[in-house]
Design a protein around this nucleic acid. Structure first.
Length: 120
DNA sequence: CGGCTGACGACCT
DNA sequence: GAGGTCGCCAGCC
């Protein structure tokens, strides 16, 4: 069983340019809304690479301030970084500024309602 | 080249 | 809701 779409998604398209495609998608998420690593992966047609989406964002250069990486949270609607780290508190603060407050555990309030839907 | 490690996620207790 | 398991896959040792 070399490839099973039920398990790996419609196609395997990981390759050069993967990071850029992740960035382009994340840039579509409007202020006040959030998305998840899994949703971004699914929008790329690869449900299995949610983890790589996180890796792509972790390697995002500080100069790329045009990419709202902080609007990407995990499937539970929570910030996927310890809240006792600078990156964790930074993400929390950026979200709060645009109206997406989080609870004590880092979960975005009204997560379901703020979840952005990638159409297409 | 084998083993470990994640900004993950679906499932099961 | 709070843990633990297992599958994924590029990057690093």
């Amino acid at each position: 069983m070399p490839y099973d779409p039920e398990r790996h998604g419609p196609e395997r398209i990981v390759g050069p340019g993967f990071h850029e495609r992740v960035f382009e998608l994340v840039k579509r998420v409007p202020s006040g809304q959030v998305t998840t690593y899994g949703d971004v992966a699914a929008a790329l047609g690869m449900r299995s690479v949610a983890r790589k989406v996180g890796h792509a964002l972790s390697s995002l250069p500080a100069e790329r301030d045009d990419v709202p990486w902080h609007r990407v949270v995990n499937a539970a609607g929570r910030i996927s970084r310890p809240l006792d780290t600078t990156s964790g508190t930074h993400q929390r603060d950026l979200l709060a500024v645009e109206g997406s407050a989080t609870d004590s555990k880092g979960r975005v309030l009204e997560f379901a309602a703020r979840r952005y839907a990638f159409d297409e």
